[in-house]
Amino acid sequence: MRVLLIEDDRMVGAAIEQALRDAAYAVDWVTDGEAAIHAAEDESYEVVLLDLGLPIADGREVLRRLRALGRKLPVIIVTARDEIEDRIDGLDLGADDYLVKPFEIRELLARMRAVLRREGSGSAAVLSNGKLQLDPATRQASFFGETSLLTAREFALLHALLARPGTILSRADLERQVYGWNEEVESNAIEFLIHAIRKKLGALAIRNVRGVGWMVDRSS
């Protein structure tokens, strides 16, 4: 699941980026408002984390322009501005949630899951096609009674497939959901992750469509 992080404080941004990657999100991090707009225009994201105090274009302007794109794009404001007027203003401009720094990463992750559930983006409490189940809260997957804890990247890959059962995703599609901009991707990384998941859950958990990509079965 791909996240756009908009944060100009290098220390804060690096900490959030690492925490999100540890939680199985692919993260693209930008440090100014104009770069944020360009990223949102060029890429597809499931959620945006937006600081307000940004250079070039501030967070309020970024939010206005994001909403002008006309997409269903969940935005969580993450800022040190804690006045009630700031919260009301941010929510009225179109933010889906408002989180004041400092915060625990567990709360941020919980708010992201809640916003994504409201948007119907495939982030239900447990994803399932009737045979395969995936719990985002614990990163546990089950297939025909075989249950296993997945690594962050294994989880991200399986989440991408299970969010769209019956849809074939190519290597490039899966790389976008597992890796952020600045992460180096080896040529066989996706195959390695799929092999690891199959080893844990069984060979039929993920199906290969030769020359096209991979899929999980439609809901039964």
Rank of each mutant, 00 (worst) to 15 (best):
F192Y: 12
R118M: 08
G202A: 10
G90Y: 11
R117M: 08
A24H: 10
I105P: 02
L132D: 09
I6W: 07
I84C: 04
H195G: 13
A163F: 05
A36E: 08
E184G: 14
T138M: 09
T151N: 05
E43Y: 15
E61T: 12
I105R: 01
L161F: 04
R153N: 14
R207E: 15
Y98G: 09
V62E: 00
P165W: 01
Y25K: 04
F103R: 02
L63H: 04
S187P: 14
L116H: 01
F143C: 11
A14V: 06
L116W: 00
P55Y: 01
P165H: 07
R65F: 02
F144D: 15
G130K: 04
V62Q: 07
A172H: 13
E146G: 02
E41Q: 15
Q133D: 10
A124P: 08
D51E: 14
L99S: 09
L150A: 01
R164I: 05
L73A: 06
A203Q: 14
Y45R: 06
L63N: 08
S187Y: 14
S123M: 15
R164N: 07
L66M: 08
L132F: 00
V75A: 06
V47N: 06
D8P: 07
L150H: 06
Q133W: 11
S148H: 15
E119M: 09
A24I: 03
R87L: 12
Q177P: 02
E175T: 10
L161K: 00
I194E: 01
D8K: 02
A114V: 11
R113V: 07
Y25A: 00
E146S: 12
E7G: 03
E107L: 12
G70K: 08
V48N: 02
P74G: 11
A40I: 04
I197M: 05
I197L: 06
A26F: 01
A26E: 00
R106W: 03
A141D: 03
E184R: 14
Y25F: 15
L193G: 01
S142T: 15
A35G: 00
L54F: 06
L66A: 05
R65I: 03
F155S: 02
A57C: 05
D58Q: 03
Q177K: 08
